[in-house]
Every structure is written in structure tokens, then in C-alpha cells.
């Protein structure tokens, strides 16, 4: 008996801020920034200068705040993000928005590997390319990548949607569960139990919504859909050569 998971269409509430606090990481520690963000209330706004690739920027946000990082972020930018909106005007390191729950994270440049890993909800937009393992173990997050993604992306992806406007690397969607993948360009190879699936009207509609939420103008009809063949859901000795 297998009951499939419904992926809900999410409302990524956009936050409008009135006044912005300016934080310069050249002369104040990351810890102070994060502490201030944890004490913040809805509607507050921060502009972060000189991030210098520092790790754990704007992690653990739990309020409707907006944070704009002007420069490159290191590992785990916007980790475990909730409710607010973080924009990186630069590139992001490993584990961007890992385990994001809600809200929005937008990287204008490229993101390194494991972007949006294990994310449970919210929207992650990467205008450039994403490295390997993008969307690994995703659990409900929506991801839109403007460029290409690396190998082993959406590995063991459980729920949520991954949209790739460029090409996908090897072993896309290996051991995937119920997440849905849309790729506009080529797929180097599909991983175990991941197959191409027909694009029906509801898929074109949800893809159009995701592209619009990411501010993109790509045509949904140009994409192909990939998902689980559901052949590995129950262990069987006859599948032993699939792994």
C-alpha cells in the first residue's frame, strides 16, 4: 500500500521593508548579524556589505525580514531559513539555504554543491548555475535554477519541485521519491529509478507558476518532466543490480 504525497503549491510571501539596517562585515562579526536577525520582527530589513565569502550568513531567520547580501557568501548562507527573504548579489557556497522551511532565497550568481539540501518548503532561486547534489534529499522545497546543475542532483529527493532552465549533470534524480523535476536542456544521464514522464496540463501550469515566482520568462512547453518510476519503493532481491 503506497499513498503518494501531494506537493502543495506554496505562497512565497514577498516581504516589503520600510527602513534598512546596514551591516558591514568588514568590521562586525557574523555572530552579531545573526543574533540581530534572530531578534528581528516582521518587516525589518538588512543590507550586508563586505560578506567576503563568510560562512553561515543570515542563518536561522524566523521572521518576515529582508536581507540583501552585497557580495559572495560562503557555506550555508540562509541555512534553515523561515519566512523572510534573503538575496545574495553574488555567488553562494556549499549548502545554500540548506533545510529551508519557508520564505525565499535568491542568489544572483552561481551556487556551489548541495544547494537547498533537505529543504522542506519555500523557494530557492539561483540565477546562475548550481553545482553537484542540488536539491539532495529535498523534502518540499521548490528550486529554480537559471543555468545548469551538477551531477547527483535531486538524489533521494522526497518532495518539492526542481526546475532547471539549463542542462542537468549525470545521475539526475537517483533514488528519487515523489519530487518532480523539470529540465529545459539536456540531461547527461538519469539515476536509478528516475524516468522521464509526460507533461500534462497540470504540470505545465505548476511549472509556469514556478518560473513566474522566480521572475523568469522561459516557456514551460520547452521543458521535460522527470520523476520516480517507483520500482525501488519495496526492497526486492531482483532489483539488486539497480543500486
Amino acid at each position: 500500500m503506497v499513498t503518494l504525497i501531494e506537493t502543495q503549491t506554496q505562497d512565497y510571501a514577498t516581504v516589503t521593508a520600510e527602513v534598512s539596517t546596514r551591516t558591514d562585515l568588514a568590521d562586525s562579526p557574523v555572530r552579531d548579524l545573526n543574533q540581530a536577525l534572530h531578534n528581528a520582527t516582521d518587516g525589518q530589513s538588512w543590507t550586508v556589505e563586505n560578506p567576503g565569502g563568510k560562512h553561515s550568513l543570515a542563518v536561522g531567520i524566523n521572521a518576515g525580514v529582508t536581507v540583501t547580501i552585497n557580495g559572495h557568501a560562503g557555506y550555508y548562507a540562509a541555512g534553515m531559513h523561515q519566512k523572510g527573504e534573503v538575496t545574495v548579489n553574488g555567488n553562494a557556497g556549499v549548502g545554500l539555504a540548506e533545510n529551508i522551511m519557508s520564505g525565499k532565497v535568491h542568489v544572483k550568481g552561481d551556487a556551489s554543491q548541495s544547494a537547498a539540501a533537505t529543504g522542506h518548503g519555500g523557494l530557492v532561486v539561483i540565477d546562475g548555475n548550481a553545482g553537484a547534489r542540488c536539491g539532495i534529499s529535498m523534502k518540499g522545497v521548490d528550486i529554480v535554477v537559471g543555468g545548469n546543475i551538477g551531477h547527483m542532483s535531486a538524489f533521494m529527493a522526497q518532495a518539492g519541485r526542481l526546475v532547471v532552465c539549463g542542462d542537468a549533470g549525470d545521475a539526475l534524480g537517483d533514488s528519487i521519491y515523489e519530487a518532480r523535476i523539470y529540465v529545459k536542456g539536456t540531461v547527461a544521464s538519469l539515476g536509478a529509478d528516475c524516468v522521464e514522464k509526460p507533461m500534462r496540463a497540470e504540470h505545465l501550469a505548476e511549472l509556469a507558476g514556478l518560473l513566474a515566482a522566480a521572475g523568469r520568462t522561459d516557456n514551460p512547453a520547452d521543458f521535460k518532466r522527470y520523476g520516480s518510476a517507483r520500482n525501488l519503493y519495496h526492497f526486492s532481491v531482483h532489483n539488486s543490480t539497480s543500486y
Partner: peptide, 21 residues
């Protein structure tokens, strides 16, 4: 899924510390 090896683990621990103040 988002770290490999002891150098990454150090950064991961840093993130968890930041999240929990």
C-alpha cells in the same frame, strides 16, 4: 547531504551554533 569530511563539519557546527545563538 551538505558536508563531507572534518573541515566541512567544522563549518557545519558553526552554522548550528549560529542558528542556536
Amino acid at each position: 547531504p551538505d558536508w563531507t569530511g572534518p573541515d566541512d563539519l567544522e563549518i557545519k557546527i558553526g552554522e548550528l551554533r549560529e542558528i542556536t545563538d
